[in-house]
Design a protein around this nucleic acid. Structure first.
Length: 403
DNA sequence: CGAGATTCATGTGAAGTATACCTTTAGGCTTAA
DNA sequence: AAGCCTAAAGGTATACTTCACATGAATCTCGTA
């Protein structure tokens, strides 16, 4: 569109019937008034946490469920209700939420505690203090306020996989050092067999209560989508079958409601951008690709240069020899070459091996350690994203690294 | 022909190193009495 | 002399390196049928 057309474009945009009436409803931060198909879990969680209103420490809870099965939503729902009642009755109750997956935020013991302390308004240095000093600061902070405290640790499986279960031990033990305040922990895990890998002592004290969130099935997903679509979109915007398709796609991915909603939202955005007034089934495919691309790009943008170089090397190898599995050695050679081009000192193979493992954790690639017998042992690596996205990503990386 | 032994390429754990940052402390400088 | 600032000392977390050992099936070796 030329410069002249710009005003016209905006005019048109304004005239055009908007597809969304309330887009927020489809965003993951939105909490609906009623949560569908989670009554059982809500009741359970509520009765576990209810004692806090009598100023008794509730049991620690461990929550399992695949991503997008409504864990965070349910917990938030219950907690905000508790807080509302607490406020009305002037009860000193605090609830902290922390997502452990965020790199550089809460991915080590130090950083996690530092973050909790920050919630209490203490300035904590990024590094430099001994970890137990941080603990002391944190304990002092919560003791000062004399409250009941619930700490919600989202995705702790990721954290424990990375740095071990010592932190959980410390947290469960922290109550013994407190006089005024009492702490309850709610651990959220995507990994169903996660507790197998932690110290049994920690396990028993952390999972005094357990809550399991089964994945939504396609029908339940449809209900959820309809509920929200009703608010989010103008009437008659959605073509027949769109909701069904969204939920089918998401059901395929272990009933991930978050994904279903995102699909719907992005599909809406896409058709809005195209200047259409309704959402077609074909928009969903486009939306799926866009979401995949965006998540990968998001991940990439938050990672350091070396990480990007490694990923770039993988994509390059992927295109030079399509559909054959990739091995660590190849990647490292390509990576070294890339480093040379950029003028960066290459990391050791040891470290690159760890970076590749991180990528696996992030879901960009899938790896499998295999033995090729006489020809050694290595990781077999496949990119977990579609070719067109890889191509796109590869170009972005290329540009970002000025290769 | 089959049971071990060997081999390769790299996984993986532990310990060491470099860097960035923190607090404490001691010394030097300034300032005000 | 008291107060303030600065730089050095001593300490820590984190990202990375170095070292050393572990892995596990294809291949080799060699004794036996």
């Amino acid at each position: 569109m030329g410069q002249k057309g710009l005003t016209g474009f905006f005019e048109n945009f304004l005239k055009q019937e908007p597809i969304f009436t309330n887009k927020k409803v489809l965003q993951s931060t939105y909490t609906p008034k009623t949560i569908l198909h989670r009554d059982e879990q809500i009741d359970q969680l509520a009765s576990i946490l209810a004692p806090i209103l009598r100023l008794e420490r509730p049991s620690n809870v461990f929550v399992y469920g695949r991503p997008g099965s409504g864990k965070s939503l349910t917990i938030q729902h219950v907690c905000s209700n508790i807080l509302r009642v607490a406020e009305k009755n002037k009860l000193e109750i605090k609830i902290l939420y922390l997502n452990c997956k965020l790199k550089g935020v809460a991915d080590t013991q130090y950083r996690l505690i530092a973050n909790l302390a920050r919630e209490f308004g203490i300035e904590v240095p990024v590094t430099g203090l001994p970890t137990d000093e941080i603990y002391k600061l944190f304990i002092k902070a919560i003791e000062k306020e004399k409250t009941l405290l619930i700490i919600i640790l989202d995705e702790i499986d990721q954290l424990v996989k990375k740095i071990g279960d010592e932190i959980l031990y410390n947290l469960t033990r922290i109550n013994t050092e407190l006089k005024n305040t009492e702490i309850s922990l709610i651990g959220i895990s995507n990994d169903l067999v996660f507790t197998n890998s932690i110290d049994p002592r920690v396990k028993s004290s952390l999972s005094e209560e357990e809550l399991i969130f089964p994945p939504y099935n396609a029908l339940q997903l449809q209900d959820i989508l309809r509920q929200r679509a009703k608010i989010a979109f103008r009437n008659e915007t959605i073509e027949e079958g769109v909701i069904e398709k969204c939920s089918a796609y998401a059901a395929r991915e272990h009933g991930d409601a978050r994904r279903a909603l995102e699909l719907l939202r992005v599909a809406g955005e896409i058709s809005e951008r195209k200047g259409k007034t309704n959402i077609k089934i074909t928009d969903i495919d486009e939306a799926e690709e866009k979401i995949d691309k965006d998540t990968v790009i998001d991940i990439i943008n938050t990672q350091p240069k070396q990480f990007k170089l490694v990923l770039y090397s993988i994509t390059k190898i992927h295109f030079s020899s399509t559909n054959t599995p990739i091995f660590t050695g190849e990647i490292y050679d390509m990576y070294k070459e890339a480093c040379f081009k950029v003028g960066l000192r290459p990391l050791t193979q040891r470290r690159v091996s760890d970076i590749i493992a991180e990528m696996d954790m992030l879901g960009i690639i899938t790896t499998r350690v295999i033995s090729k017998g006489r020809y050694g042992r290595t990781r077999e690596i496949c990119l977990a994203i579609s070719d067109s996205i890889i191509n796109n990503v590869s170009n972005i990386l290329k540009e970002g690294l000025s290769l």
